[in-house]
Design a protein around this nucleic acid. Structure first.
Lengths: 137, 137
DNA sequence: GATATTGGTTACCATGAGGTAGGTATAGAT
DNA sequence: ATCTATACCTACCTCATGGTAACCAATATC
């Protein structure tokens, strides 16, 4: 895996147009941001449609505004569906799409890789400050 | 893969302490941010140590301040090494660590998955606006 | 003595992302 | 007539982030 870096075949970005690059980057940022992942996780757990208020209850710490924005972005990206029932207290349901489910799985894979390497990261954090050669700054 | 969402065994987060969760989340955000990925990519391409100025030249659009911050963060996380030679025009070299190389590969995997699904995302973007049932607001 | 080099740090300013509070629409209950 | 519930939207304020520019240290060069 790391070898494809060493032998120079490490070519992402180069195979994409600028537009595609920007879109992929945007997706990556969205997928790894704080709220989208949580919201998608909640929706995945629900295994079915969820009303706005239910999501708001379960995503701890999120504000209504940000949840609205988050859901709209996820909808625009095809990761969740939004279904409006024009009742008189309006009812809106959100559900994870198959694409959203797949993306979630991919991100969770990366997440778990990171979780497995957590000791390495913590070790790096502690080992800091005395690795420099030379008396110091 | 998606099935482990459907049958309820979808449990990341729950297996981690709050500290670990926060750390993993921070790593994920860092790994997917705009500059760290580019800087690591440059460093990976170089297949060896690179001076600060060389990195600055190659990462198009980054400012000196942000590159400094980025490199310091990467160093703190054990993803790059920083070697200071206390010469009189100071010389500092940065190099990707094995851990950094592995992380890069993982993120690139996700990146490529997204790139492969780009048509789906674009389709979702276009198909927006008429999926709502009900005349609309 | 003035200046350039290298890898920063610091001060200052602009942009924007997020939080809070309030408004809106409408039917049914009181 | 008024209040409640739902899923927002809009305005306003704040705080963090990123950019620009100036400064630094020590030697070598003009």
């Amino acid at each position: 895996m790391v070898t494809n870096i060493k032998n120079g075949t490490f070519d992402f970005c180069e195979t994409l147009t600028d537009d595609e690059d920007a879109l992929a980057r945007a997706m990556l940022e969205r997928a790894s941001a704080k709220w989208p992942l949580r919201v998608m996780h909640i929706l995945a757990e629900a295994k079915g449609p969820l009303r706005f208020s239910r999501v708001l209850e379960r995503v701890e710490g999120i504000s209504q505004k940000v949840l609205t924005q988050t859901l709209r972005t996820l909808e625009a990206d095809g990761l969740v569906t939004r279904t409006l029932y024009p009742q008189v207290p309006p009812r809106v349901e959100y559900e994870l799409t198959p694409l959203g489910g797949e993306l979630l799985v991919e991100v969770v894979g990366l997440w778990q890789w990171i979780a497995n390497r957590l000791p390495d990261f913590e070790a790096a954090r502690k080992a800091k400050g005395q690795t420099e050669n030379g008396p110091k700054n």
